[in-house]
Design a protein around this nucleic acid. Structure first.
Ligand SMILES: [Mn+2]
Ligand SMILES: [Mn+2]
Ligand SMILES: [Zn+2]
Ligand SMILES: [Zn+2]
Lengths: 144, 144
DNA sequence: GTTCTCTTTGAAAATAGATGTCAATTTAAA
DNA sequence: TTTAAATTGACATCTATTTTCAAAGAGAAC
């Protein structure tokens, strides 16, 4: 199943049907906006990127919450602001404190070590959140 | 240097001197409250734990910010709420979604892998944040 | 296509956590 | 003690998000 917008839209419609929710132009446009962002986007940014300026911020939050609860989008928090992206394979983030650039990575060793640690405490892990903060290559040059 | 309150208080007084700040009963009481909490505490919880009810929430925030900027306390964010603790060796947290219990751990392998990942991206890491979420041993029993 | 009911929406108010403002109070150096 | 500068508490403000509710819209049943 490729990730064309058409496929995403179909999945979204199925999700709505499953939850006995209605397909509205607002919901579609919000989905489209998150698809088009092609990266990490906050609710506020998403709101401002909408073509139809009549769509309310509350509808944006409502739709994003729905998508998140259905695991259609995945989030993480950067300086107190939730960042959304279409759900794909699990990964973590490394963030530049200067320019805001975000790189993604997945390290199976870290993932395994986490499981090991959790079970050593008797915890059943449902989730984790790992972010690294620093200065990216470009911003290191810029500095002096 | 042991971690008795007396020692903590002396360190705090030195910190104030160094920054040309004044020693006030409010600042002392907030320090005492965080010391007494003996674990992770939010600003709101700390505020309500104060003996002197006249101390304002703004003073709590101001004092905590000062302590944090001086690396006297360390924080992490749990469900959007900053948690404070007296600074000790670096560690990460594993949090129970049911009862809120927080366990601490330090895994040198994970720490090293993070450095490795960062440098593979050309990043200079200043900080990281790792939390695992799940259900603790006790809460697993409680469930059925 | 029309009807009709239930859902969804946008605007505005409310909330939570945190920060800014400022006149009154307090600290501590002189 | 005097005094200038720092600190405080009350309150306003801010940001991100959620709630409220009357009006508009979706879509199943006709
Ligand atoms: Mn990502
Ligand atoms: Mn801790
Ligand atoms: Zn950068
Ligand atoms: Zn628990």
């Amino acid at each position: 199943m490729e990730n064309s917008y058409k496929n995403i839209l179909e999945k979204f419609k199925k999700l709505l049907k499953k939850n006995e929710l209605k397909f509205t132009k607002q919901r579609e446009e919000i989905l489209e906006a998150i698809y088009n962002s092609k990266s990490h986007i906050s609710s506020e940014e998403l709101y401002h990127s909408l073509q139809n300026p009549k769509i309310g911020i509350a509808t944006v939050y409502r739709t994003l919450s729905l998508l998140e609860s259905e695991n259609f989008v995945t989030t993480f928090i950067n300086s107190g602001v939730k960042q959304y992206e279409l759900t794909k394979e699990h990964h973590d983030h490394i963030i530049c404190n200067k320019c805001g650039k975000i790189e993604e990575f997945l390290n199976p060793e870290i993932e395994m070590l986490q499981e090991k640690i959790a079970s050593s405490f008797g915890f059943k892990i449902t989730d984790h959140s790992l972010q690294m903060f620093g200065i990216c290559k470009e911003c290191q040059k810029d500095n002096l």
